[in-house]
Every structure is written in structure tokens, then in C-alpha cells.
Design a protein around this nucleic acid. Structure first.
Lengths: 208, 208
DNA sequence: GTCTATAAGTTGATAGAC
DNA sequence: GTCTATCAACTTATAGAC
């Protein structure tokens, strides 16, 4: 009996899905949803086009899975923001985690940015749900720190917008960063300098 | 004699170009370069499709003109950053000008963001040229303020990246902002609150 | 300068052999 | 589960009448 066709979680299926998702992230990042073609993603994955439809049904479903994975990864580092934590080190660690993600997987950030830019037609539900819930919870923690006099009064929700913007700009708009800095490629040293800058701006902004 | 066909700067031509550029900004912002169709832009402008080709030749040229106009508008408010200016009020005014632009013409910001996101294939030259030159000049002014002890030492070039990111996020990712805040539309009050937040974060970040 | 009709090319998706 | 061949739909761009 052919096990694979009856086992939706089998190892072949799993491996091929990962392969396709990685290729899709790259192609969607470079070309956007409409600019990306199933043919280009198939080529990047080294598989025939029909296989993408076999695993993901259609283009939008593939796109949605790329986005959902990114959102999940982004929510994880918020875990360090707890009432007991030290505000200064908790915020610094969160900002550094986001900067590291921008440097390590810029394509994931770009696909997400593109989706938001066009009104989140596919990810709308998750943004209204999981993301909003998490931010409200963590903003409450920050409000607690402020009430306890542990940091300057800032708008805690807008603080997240500022942190996301300041960190993700290095992934989303890296052409602009490279053009202005006059670099053809950002080195580890450039990323270090950028991270230190953002951390110190945000911490001073929070009076920390 | 039919003057309009022999006068490339005539009033009919001018008015139609403006009409088309406005419609294009809206459609490109919502759908990206590839997602936008000439048919959709024509419909938004209330003109037949062939007229767009008559005035702009092809889709990419129309797109390029939308972008070039936006970049120009964005460079203007940097004029207030001069050696003689007061650092605090000059930076505050610049940030407020950028926040006002995000609120007033979010589509312009979105088209620009989309272009950068995909590697600036069309605007590359202008980013490497005009933008880079302007930033280097203004960063030198800020370095002068720092050397004179008029503000905290920050990386002056990265400061611009942070300001652009923090301000433009309210245009580019406004769906996210609205979703997290739980608003279907941002009011003037919301924009005021956002502007005050960003201004105070940036000024404290600069030790001002 | 305006507009209809259409040519030429591209793309998402599927059928069906293996 | 893999892959080739192909279709149906859509899009840019232009020709040519007005």
C-alpha cells in the first residue's frame, strides 16, 4: 500500500511542504502576491508547477501559509515581556530579537509588509485576532510598569508600532538603507550598529 | 488649428495627466505594481484605457512618475534642518510634517513603500542619487549639533531611518494600526495621539 | 485628442498518463 | 505522489476610425 497518499502528515509531504514554503517566501518577497508566479515558485523549489497545487490547492492558500508562519514566529519573542521582568532588559531583548529576525529572514518580513500594505486581504482575521489579543496583553504589562514608576509614561500600544516599524525597516526597506549608507550589502557590523542605534533610541524614548 | 496636439504642456494635457496620476496612485497603492491594471486605473480616472498609453506611453512610466512626485514631496520638509535651527523644534517639525503626510496622503506612502519592498527596480537611481545626497547633507547638520553638545550622540543617518519608519508606518500599515487599536477608521484625534507619541519618543531618543 | 476593437503574450489551474 | 500538456481567462499595448 502506498502510505504517503493516505497520510497527510507523512515525512514526504512534510518535507515537500517546507521546500515549497521556503521557495514561496523568497518569490513572494521579491515580487509581491500578484508579481509572483506559480511557475517561478516551482522553479525555486525545483519541482514541477502541478505539485504546488497538489500540496496547497491554490496560490492564495500557499501565500496564506507563508504569512501565518511568519506571524507566529513574530509573536514568540513577546513572551519575555512580563510584569516581573526588568523593563529595560525586557524591552532591549525584544528589540534585539526583532532586529535579529530582520537580519536573518528579511523575506518573511517583506511578505508580511506587502500583505499589510495592501490592506491585509488574506491575513485580516489573524491580525484582528491573535495579534491584537497579544498586543493588548503586553501593552497592559507595560502600563503596569509605568504605573509603578519603573519607566516614563508612553503610549504602550503605539510603542509596539514604533518598535515594529524601527526594526522591520531594516528588512523591508533594506534597499533604501543600503543606498543611503552607500553599501552594496549590509555586513554583520552594519547590523550591529543598526541594532545598537534602535535599542538606544527606544530605551531613551522609554526613559530607560 | 488644434493647439492641444502640438502643445505638450497645454492645459488639457496637464489636467488629464494630473487626473491619471491621482487615479494611478490610488490603484497602485491598493494593488501594487503587478496587481494594478491599466483598466482599473482608467476606470478610476474615468477615461478609456488607451488614453493612459497616449499620455504616459506604458504602465511602468506612469508608475515611475507617481513615485518621483512622492519622493520630491518628501524631501521638502527636510529644509528646516539647518545648522542655525534649534535641534528640538527642527526635529519636531520634521517629524510632524512626516506624520501629517502619512495621514493626508497614505496612498503615496504605500506606493513608495511597495517600490522599496521589491528592491526599488524603477526608482533605484533616484534613491541612490537625490535621496542619498539629501540625507548625507542633513545628517551632517545633525552631527554638527551633536558636536556642539546641543543633543545626545545618536547615529544621524540611522536617525532618519527611524523617523521615516516610525512615521510612515501609520500610512503603510494602517490596517495593522486600526486592527490593534480596534478602530475601523482613524480619527483626527487618533492621528494627534500618534503624532504626539512619535514626537516624544524621537525627541527623548535624541535627548531633547 | 478620444475611444473601440483586437492582437500578442502571460498565468493559474487541471486533466490524465505514469 | 510526480509530471507533461493544455486550457481558459486575463492583461498590456496598439491599430485605426472618429
Amino acid at each position: 500500500m502506498n502510505r504517503s497518499s493516505s497520510d497527510p502528515g507523512g515525512p514526504i509531504r512534510q518535507a515537500n511542504r517546507e521546500l515549497i514554503l521556503g521557495a514561496a517566501e523568497k518569490v513572494f518577497a521579491r515580487a509581491g502576491f500578484n508579481g509572483a508566479t506559480m511557475a517561478a515558485i516551482a522553479e525555486a523549489a525545483g519541482l514541477p508547477k502541478a505539485n504546488l497545487h497538489y500540496y496547497f490547492g491554490n496560490k492564495q492558500e500557499l501565500y496564506r501559509e507563508v504569512l501565518a508562519g511568519t506571524l507566529h514566529d513574530w509573536l514568540v519573542p513577546m513572551d519575555g515581556i512580563t510584569p516581573e521582568a526588568d523593563p529595560r532588559s525586557a524591552i532591549e531583548q525584544y528589540v534585539r530579537a526583532k532586529m535579529a529576525m530582520s537580519a536573518a529572514r528579511p523575506d518573511a518580513s517583506r511578505v508580511f509588509a506587502n500583505e499589510l500594505l495592501h490592506g491585509a486581504p488574506v491575513l485580516g482575521d489573524l491580525v484582528h485576532g491573535e495579534l491584537r489579543t497579544m498586543v493588548k496583553r503586553k501593552a497592559a504589562v507595560i502600563d503596569g510598569w509605568i504605573a509603578a514608576g519603573r519607566m516614563t509614561a508612553v503610549d504602550s500600544i503605539h510603542l509596539f508600532f514604533t518598535i515594529w516599524a524601527a526594526t522591520q525597516t531594516y528588512a523591508d526597506f533594506d534597499v533604501q538603507v543600503r543606498a543611503v549608507l552607500g553599501r552594496s550589502r549590509l555586513t554583520a557590523r552594519d547590523h550591529q550598529r543598526a541594532a545598537d542605534h534602535v535599542v538606544s533610541m527606544i530605551l531613551r524614548g522609554c526613559g530607560l
